[in-house]
Amino acid sequence: MFGWALTFLIVALIAAILGFGGIAGVAVEAAKIVFFVAVVLFAISAVVHLVRGRSPTVP
């Protein structure tokens, strides 16, 4: 997911350099949304991992 956020950020930078302000703004907003969704999913995953703990190993 961080790859998608980075992709949108690069698209926004290229669009801004070429003068496409509207496209750059949309790409920046998409990058922000994807980044924060990835951070939230990471946090949820970390909490679930801490709650579940390690599973016992079977000999």
Rank of each mutant, 00 (worst) to 15 (best):
V39N: 01
V40L: 15
V28R: 02
P59V: 02
G21M: 05
V40C: 09
A12C: 07
F36G: 01
G25T: 12
A5N: 08
S55L: 11
H49R: 12
V26Y: 08
R52Y: 04
G3H: 11
A46K: 08
F20M: 08
V58C: 02
V37C: 03
A16Q: 14
A24H: 07
H49D: 15
G53K: 11
L18S: 05
V58T: 10
V51A: 12
T57R: 10
V34S: 06
G22F: 08
L41I: 07
I17V: 14
V40H: 02
R52M: 13
A24Q: 03
V51F: 12
F35I: 00
I14E: 04
F42K: 06
V34Y: 02
A24V: 10
V47L: 15
I23T: 12
F20H: 14
A31V: 03
E29F: 14
F42W: 09
R54L: 03
G53Q: 07
M1G: 12
A5P: 11
F35K: 13
A27S: 13
V40F: 12
I14K: 12
G25R: 06
W4P: 00
L18W: 01
A27H: 02
F8R: 09
F2W: 08
F35E: 05
V11Q: 09
V11K: 13
F42R: 10
A12T: 05
W4H: 14
A30V: 11
G19N: 01
A38I: 01
F20S: 10
F35V: 00
L6D: 11
I23D: 01
W4A: 12
E29A: 15
V11H: 04
T57K: 08
F35Y: 15
V47C: 01
V28W: 03
F36K: 11
L41Q: 10
A15S: 13
A12P: 05
G3S: 13
I10C: 08
V11N: 06
H49E: 10
A46C: 04
I17Y: 05
R54K: 13
L50F: 12
P56F: 04
E29Y: 08
F20G: 03
M1Y: 06
A15G: 02
V48E: 10
V47Q: 00
V51L: 15
L6G: 13
A16T: 03
A5Y: 07
A38S: 15
I44W: 03
G19Q: 00
H49M: 12
V58F: 04
F8G: 01
G21Q: 04
G3N: 12
A27M: 09
A12K: 08
L41D: 10
G21N: 06
V37P: 00
A30H: 02
R54D: 05
S55G: 11
G53T: 11
P56D: 08
I23G: 09
A31G: 15
A12D: 11
A27G: 09
S45A: 04
S55P: 03
V48K: 11
P59W: 01
L50G: 06
A27L: 00
L18K: 06
A46Y: 05
